[in-house]
Simulated scan of single mutants.
Amino acid sequence: MKVSWDHVYAWRMRRQYLDPRTTQGASAIVGRLCGVQAQVWNAAELAVALRQSTPAPDSVDRDFADRSLMKTWAMRGALHLLPPSQAPAYLSLMETTGFWLKPSWQRVSGVTPRQVDALTEKVAGILDGAVLTRDQLVTRLMADTGFKSMEESLRSGWGQVLKPLAWRGVLCHGAPQGNQITFTSPASQYPTWGTMPAPDEAAPVVISAYLGAYSPATAEVFDRWLSRGSTSKPRLRRWFADIGDKVTEVDVEGRKALMLTEHVDELADIAAWKGLRLLGGFDQYILGPGTTDDVLIPARHRGLVSRAAGWISPIVVVNGRVVGVWQILDQEIVVTAFPGSARMPLKQLEAEALHVARARGLNALSVRITD
C-alpha cells in the first residue's frame, strides 16, 4: 500500500491524542505514547495536559501520587513516566543493551559487571518496602565494605550505575522529599507492577505499542527510540520477524516501513490533517520517530530543535510537520519560525496559546512571531 506523509501525520496526530484531544487522564495518555520523557518534570506535565481537551495541569501529579504512573530510567537511558503495569516489558528490552558489560563503561565507572550483579541483589533487599533518598541508600550500601569503591559512582546524579538496576526491575524513583530524589522498589510500591518478562516475550508487546503510536516505522527507527541503536542487530531482526503478519509493510512516498496490520485501513482512509499545534519541550511527537527524521524536521533546522546537552525545544507543528520553535517569556509565547517557512496563521497560534496557558494553569498568554 502506498500513502503520503500527509496521511501518516494525520494518523499519528489522531493516535497521539493531538487531534482530536482526549478526556483521558495522564496514565492513559502516557500508556498510548509508550512513556513520556520526564527528565524535566514540567515538560512531562505539559505533554500530557496539551493532549487533554480540558487541560488538567495536575493530572501527572495526581496519577503519580496514586501510583498509576511511575518514574524510572527507561528508553535511551532517560527518565520516563510509565504505567507500572506496562513498565516491565520496556525495562526488559532495555536490559538487553548490557552497556555495563562494555569495557569502555567499566573503565569510566570503575565498576565491573560482577559488582553490578552484587549491587542489584543488595539494593533489592534494602529497598524492599522502603523509600530512601540517594544519600540514605548510599549510606546503607557503604555499611558493606564490598561497595566502598563504588561510592563516588553511586552518588553521581547521572545514575549510570543505577540504571541497570532499574532495567532489572529492582529500583525506580519514588516521591521526592523536598528537593531530594528518592528511590524505591517497584514491586513493593505499585500494586499493578507485574513480573519481569523475558526479552523475547516483551518485544512483541513493546513493538506493537510503539507502532500503535508512531507508525509507519522501521526496525532501525524503533531501536533508535528504544536504545539509540544499541540492540543487537540479529536480536532486533528476530523480534520483528517473530511478529509475522501482525505487521504490514507500507510505502510512504518511496520509504518502506511497517505498521500494525489492524491499522492499515485506518491509515488509508484518513484525510490529511490541516492545522497547528504548539507542543512542549521533549514532546513524544518528535521523540518517537526521532529528531533525525528529516521529513518531520528539515535537517537544516534540526539544530533549533535538538539543542546542546540533549535539550529538545518546544515545537510548532503545522499540517503535521515541525515548522518552528517557541518559548514563554513573561506572559508571552514567542514563536520563532524556521527560515523560509510559510507565514503562520495568527488566529490558530492564539487559540493554541490559550490551550498552552490552560495547560500551564495560567489565564492567558499573548503571541509574538519572530523570524
Rank of each mutant, 00 (worst) to 15 (best):
A130F: 08
L132H: 05
R134Q: 14
D135W: 02
Q136E: 15
L141T: 14
M142E: 14
M142W: 05
T145L: 04
G146C: 05
K148Y: 09
K148F: 10
E151H: 08
E151G: 03
E152V: 14
V161P: 15
V161Y: 04
L162W: 15
K163R: 15
P164D: 09
W167C: 07
R168N: 06
V170H: 06
H173I: 06
P176W: 10
G178P: 11
G178C: 06
N179L: 11
N179Y: 08
Q180M: 13
I181K: 07
T182H: 10
T182V: 09
F183N: 10
F183L: 12
S188N: 11
S188A: 13
Q189L: 13
P191I: 09
G194S: 13
P197I: 02
P197F: 05
A198E: 13
D200C: 00
E201S: 12
A202I: 00
A202R: 03
P204R: 00
V206R: 01
V206L: 04
I207S: 05
I207M: 09
I207D: 02
S208L: 06
A209T: 11
A209V: 05
L211D: 00
L211C: 02
A213H: 04
S215W: 04
S215P: 10
S215T: 06
P216V: 12
P216Q: 12
A217P: 15
A217R: 11
T218K: 11
A219G: 10
V221N: 07
F222N: 09
F222V: 02
R224K: 14
R224D: 13
S230L: 11
K233C: 01
P234Q: 07
P234W: 02
R235S: 08
L236F: 05
R237K: 14
D242T: 04
D242R: 12
I243E: 01
G244Y: 00
D245W: 00
K246N: 07
K246R: 15
K246Q: 12
E249K: 05
D251L: 08
E253A: 12
R255T: 13
R255P: 01
A257F: 03
L258Q: 07
L260F: 02
L260D: 05
T261Y: 07
D265V: 07
E266M: 14
E266T: 15
L267W: 04
A271H: 13
R277H: 08
L278V: 09
L278Y: 03
